[in-house]
Design a protein around this nucleic acid. Structure first.
Lengths: 166, 166
DNA sequence: AGATGTCGTTGGTGGTCCCAACGATACAGA
DNA sequence: TCTGTATCGTTGGGACCACCAACGACATCT
């Protein structure tokens, strides 16, 4: 029952990128799996899993790490500014900061100079936790790129940045 | 327009917008952004957005494209087999196939040889739509890698596969 | 026959991202 | 000073993707 109509017939095309060694009977799935977007999703999912597991050992998740880093860099800073810097939605920023505040890693005080704003600051414990988070994150990324040589990693990151920035 | 005073206005300033170089006192954010996992997430998100928009022009989404491709390759096939092949959760497979069936792109008939199974087959319209989906997907991936030369694309995909497979 | 496992399905969770609206507040211009 | 406009943090909702638990129906192995 193989009535392969799609793509198997006279789809000569330019022959670009097409991995010539693909199963001739039904290349549709292999084509999809060869797409950069597909492989990017797979690699990204693996990275998220590795980093997620690593940060979970510190009781936090990736957004917490990012926001904690931003607070560390920007000193006392408003939530909206944190959102612009890290790219997280204001809606989600509320929950992230709630978690960090509940864990005693940041303080959230009203800004006397602008009473609309919250001044977010890093606590000492937050600073210590951030160091450990960075270590865990580095370990996870080390494992993520484990199959690559140092030279390949450099090249990969360079190309990846181009793709990410569009 | 408006000067951004921020909470730390009085003593931080130090001269510029600070967008230029990495601040040596607090490189935490820059470190995170330089992580492969961070860049992978960015690139993957861009890919998902581009592909999603492209496939939406055909009224479908990425999982539909993948499953439709699998059905095209595997002829009449059970849902569980589709799930194993494409990696989608059985729960999600139900919804995906509901959509494809409602759109007349696949048929779902009871398998007489095993009444637990559904035999999923591609319709003629499904085959035609799949061709268009593949074209749209290729266009989106073309744009995704637009900043890379052909040689860079090949190298990038090679490294990306290594990272994805771990 | 009974034990075991797979089938499709339903239900629920969590994470990421985006949008709309709200009250409170700040600010620029009439 | 008053008034409109914009931003602040917050709440609520939705789309999409990934994952897991449980169930009845059914097949298979012993």
């Amino acid at each position: 029952m193989k009535k392969e109509t799609a793509a198997s017939g006279t789809e000569t095309e330019t022959g670009t990128g097409a991995r010539a060694g693909i199963d001739p009977s039904g290349p549709a799935l292999a084509r999809i799996r060869a797409l950069p977007s597909w492989q990017l999703n797979r690699a990204s999912a693996r990275g998220r899993r590795l980093v997620g597991e690593a940060l979970a050992r510190e009781g936090l998740r990736m957004p917490h790490h990012a926001v904690l880093s931003a607070v560390s860099d920007l000193g006392p800073v408003a939530q909206a500014e944190l959102g612009r810097t890290t790219g997280f939605d204001p809606k989600d920023m509320v929950g992230i900061l709630n978690d960090l505040q509940a864990a005693g890693l940041v303080t959230r005080e009203p800004d006397p100079a602008d009473r609309r704003k919250n001044a977010i600051s890093l606590t000492d414990e937050g600073g210590r936790r951030l160091v450990r988070l960075a270590e865990r994150g580095d370990e996870a990324n080390e494992e993520l790129l484990g199959a690559l040589t140092p030279g390949e990693r450099e090249r990969f990151l360079e190309l990846l940045r181009k793709v990410a920035e569009g």
